[in-house]
């Protein structure tokens, strides 16, 4: 057991942390809110090879492990970077499977194709609101027996939907996304999609974990600085104790995210359950932390001027892109408890 990052991962963290700090400043995050996507940031990510970094080297990708991707997603989350990174990385993983995806994958690597993924299978021709779809060129989706890449006919526009977290959401329906390329069919299609959604859980959990760390830092700095009744509000025990509880849950969330990534890389039988756990716990902890941090800002936390509201909204939004957590909990119970004989 070694719970530290490898040297390579530390170096990776250093460089992506710098990238997001420079390219995803709070001003840029705010500027991108209406569209939910920062095209300049996207170009920088493409130049750094990030969209395809998880794809095997033989296929032109960076050959990174899920643990490496998690390092990147944490740093993106820390700056609430305005790109749908978990969706892009997941879509790239799906395109990398079958030969039919090769051209599109090359386009993702070159930056000419922006992909996203529909996490919920299409039903009656629609996948409901999908993060990234308002700016994406292609959407990878499961439609019945087929894993497909959906795209639009020349000149057909998507209608961006106003949303909680500035995630470039649009409804994905086959009426608008009328062109399809089949990547896989039957069991293979379903398995590939389920596995990709599991990867998305880990990456989104990682992004939420980065968000959580920064939300806590913002809150802790604020309470040390702000005075009331002649003392810093950090002096009040109720403030201290809530932050201590959140820091403790936070250490747990961080470990769980890394464990889920490690389990995927190691091919553990627990990987799918740990991915669900990581998403649920990272989401819950990120939101609780951002909410408390906002609360301890008093009235200022409620103003748009302070950054904590950016974190508060996304802490909830990123997890809910998949749907209501109750379904995740039930599926987790099935993973954990249903398998063994009574």
């Amino acid at each position: 057991m070694d719970l530290s990052l490898t040297e390579d991962q530390q170096a990776l963290r250093g460089s992506v942390a710098e990238l997001f700090e420079k390219q995803a400043t709070p001003e840029r995050v705010r500027a991108a809110e209406a569209v939910g996507h920062d095209a300049a940031l996207w170009r920088v990510l493409v130049q750094s090879g990030i969209p395809t970094m998880g794809v095997a080297e033989e296929l032109g990708g960076g050959g990174a492990t899920v643990s490496d991707l998690v390092v990147v997603a944490i740093e993106a989350g820390r700056r609430v970077a305005p790109v749908v990174l978990p969706e892009v990385l997941t879509a790239a993983a799906l395109l990398a499977g079958p030969a039919a995806g090769a051209d599109l994958l090359a386009g993702v690597g070159e930056g000419t194709v922006l992909p996203t993924v529909a996490l919920r299978p299409l039903r009656d021709g629609t996948a409901g609101p999908v993060a990234g779809a308002a700016v994406a060129d292609v959407v990878v989706a499961l439609d019945g027996e087929e894993l497909v890449v959906l795209s639009r006919r020349e000149g057909v526009a998507v209608e961006p939907l106003p949303d909680l977290g500035g995630a470039a959401i649009a409804e994905v329906s086959t009426a608008v996304w009328s062109q399809r390329l089949v990547l896989a069919t039957g069991d293979e299609a379903r398995r590939a999609h389920a596995d990709a959604v599991s990867l998305w859980r880990v990456l989104t959990a990682a992004a939420l974990e980065g968000l959580r760390q920064e939300a806590l830092r913002i809150g802790v700095d604020y309470v040390k600085d702000r005075h009331a009744f002649g003392v810093p509000i950090a002096w009040f025990q109720t403030v201290q104790h809530r932050l201590a509880d959140l820091a403790t849950a936070g250490d747990g969330a961080e470990l769980l995210v890394h464990e889920a990534a490690w389990a995927r890389d190691a091919g553990s039988v627990k990987a799918a359950a740990l991915a669900r756990m990581a998403l649920l716990f990272a989401g819950e902890t990120a939101f609780a932390t951002a909410a408390a941090s906002l609360h301890f800002h008093g009235g200022y936390g409620y103003t748009l001027e302070y950054d904590i509201q950016l974190y508060y909204r996304r802490a909830k939004a990123w997890q809910l892109a998949l749907g209501a957590p109750r379904y995740e909990l039930r599926a987790l119970a099935a993973d954990l408890f249903a398998g063994e004989a009574a």
């Binding site: 769980l256 464990e259 716990f281 109750r326 119970a333 954990l336």
Partner: peptide
């Protein structure tokens, strides 16, 4: 099922800490 799953997450977090 939901409640038991939630408790299992708590246990896993405790184990990791």
């Amino acid at each position: 099922a939901e409640q038991l799953a939630r408790l299992a997450i708590d246990e896993e977090v405790g184990r990791l800490l």
